[in-house]
C-alpha cells in the first residue's frame, strides 16, 4: 500500500542546514553566536511541538513496554514488589499446555486468514476493477461489515448460527434438518472455525478495498498489450494484476500475520475461548492470566514471547520488501 510504504522511506529531505535569516545577520553583525542561539531556539520550539505526542507515547506505550521486559522475569502479581525469578516464567511457559493450545489456534487462525479472505479480497477487487456501473455500490456494501463494531457483528452471527432460531430454524420450515443440532460456537470441533468465519466476514471487504486501490495503479497499457496478444481474464489476472500489486500483497500478508497473533475480539465475544479452550487465543490467555489469576509477571512473559514472534515476522517481511525494492 502506497501510503504505508512511503512512511518507511523518509519522504522528508534531510534537514537543511540552519539558515540564519538574512535580515538578522545584517543588522546584528556578529552572525555566528547570534545564529547559534536562533538555531537553538528553533530546535527548542520544534521539540516543544513534538513533546505532547512523545510524552504520551512514553507514558502509555514506551514505559510500560520496556518495564514489561523486566516484569516478564519476575513473580509480579500487579500490586506487590516484584521479585526477580530468572527463567522460571520461561520454564512455566514451555510446560504450559494452555499456552501451546492457544498459540496453536493463533497459527490456525493465521493460515485461515492468509487464504480465505485473501482469495475473496483478490477476487472481489479484480472483478470490481473490471466493471464501471455499480462499482461504488459494491465497494460500499463489501466495506460496511469492516466498519461495524465486533460486538454487533458477533451478535448478527450468533443469531444466524443459533440452532434454535437462525438458519437452522428457517431450514426446518422447509424440511431441511441437517443443521438442527449443529452448535457452531458450542461444539469444540467447530468453535475456532466459526469464530474465524465471523471475523473473516467482517474483514475481507477491507482487503477488497486495499487490493482495488493497488490494481487501479497498475499500468493500463499492460492490460491492453495482453489483450492484443489474446490473453483471457484469468491470464491477465495471473500474469499482470498479481505481479503488478506485489508490494500490496506482501503488505497484506504482513498485517494479517501480525494481526493473527493479536486476534482478540471475536473469540472473546463469541465463545470466550471455549468450550474447553477450543477457541482460546493467546490474547485471551494473557488477559485471563494477568487480570483473572493476577499472575502479571507470567502474563508479561507470554506477551513478550508473542511480541518477539511478531518482531521476527516483521524482520522477515522487511527483508522480503527490501529484495522486492531491489528487483523492481
Amino acid at each position: 500500500m502506497s501510503t504505508a510504504t512511503s512512511t518507511t522511506s523518509p519522504p522528508t529531505p534531510p534537514a537543511a542546514p540552519p539558515q540564519v535569516p538574512a535580515g538578522l545577520e545584517a543588522t546584528v553583525g556578529r552572525s555566528r553566536p547570534r545564529g547559534g542561539t536562533v538555531r537553538r531556539r528553533r530546535r527548542l520550539v520544534a521539540m516543544l511541538f513534538l513533546l505532547p505526542a512523545l510524552a504520551l507515547n512514553l507514558l502509555v506505550i514506551g514505559g510500560p513496554g520496556v518495564s514489561s521486559i523486566y516484569y516478564a522475569f519476575t513473580d509480579w502479581n500487579g500490586f506487590t514488589t516484584p521479585k526477580f525469578t530468572g527463567f522460571a516464567n520461561a520454564i512455566h511457559l514451555a510446560n504450559d499446555a494452555d499456552f501451546w493450545n492457544a498459540i496453536g489456534h493463533n497459527f490456525i487462525y493465521m493460515i485461515i486468514f492468509l487464504t480465505v479472505p485473501m482469495i475473496m479480497g483478490l477476487a472481489g477487487a479484480f472483478m470490481l476493477s473490471r466493471i464501471r456501473r455499480g462499482a461504488v455500490f459494491f465497494r460500499v456494501v463489501f466495506f460496511i461489515p469492516y466498519l461495524i463494531a465486533s460486538v454487533v457483528n458477533a451478535q448478527i452471527w450468533k443469531n444466524l448460527l443459533d440452532p434454535a432460531s437462525g438458519l437452522a430454524a428457517q431450514l426446518d420450515k422447509i424440511g431441511v434438518h441437517f443443521l438442527d443440532n449443529v452448535y457452531f460456537f458450542g461444539d469444540s470441533n467447530l468453535s475456532l472455525y466459526s469464530v474465524a468465519f465471523v471475523d473473516n466476514w467482517h474483514f475481507w471487504g477491507f482487503l477488497v478495498v486495499l487490493f482495488l486501490a493497488a490494481m487501479q495503479g497498475v499500468d493500463a497499457s499492460r492490460f491492453e498489450a495482453a489483450r492484443i496478444d489474446g490473453a483471457n481474464a484469468w491470464q491477465e489476472f495471473w500474469h499482470i494484476t498479481l505481479p503488478g500489486i506485489r508490494p500490496t500483497l506482501t503488505f497484506a500478508i504482513m498485517i494479517i500475520s501480525l494481526w493473527s497473533l493479536l486476534a482478540f475480539d471475536y473469540s472473546y465475544v463469541l465463545t470466550g475461548g471455549g468450550p474447553a479452550g477450543s477457541s482460546d487465543l493467546v490474547s485471551l490467555l494473557v488477559n485471563r492470566t494477568a487480570f483473572g489469576s493476577l499472575e502479571a509477571g507470567y502474563a508479561a512473559f507470554i506477551a513478550l514471547a508473542m511480541s518477539l514472534l511478531g518482531g521476527i515476522f516483521l524482520i522477515i517481511f522487511s527483508i522480503i520488501r527490501r529484495n522486492e525494492d531491489e528487483t523492481n
Partner: peptide, 23 residues
Amino acid sequence: FGNYFFVVISLPVQLFLVPLFFL
C-alpha cells in the same frame, strides 16, 4: 523520531497492556 513512531505502530498491544493496567 519518525522511525520511532513507525516502530511503535507495529508494537503488539499485549506488550504494554499488563504493566499499563497496573500503572
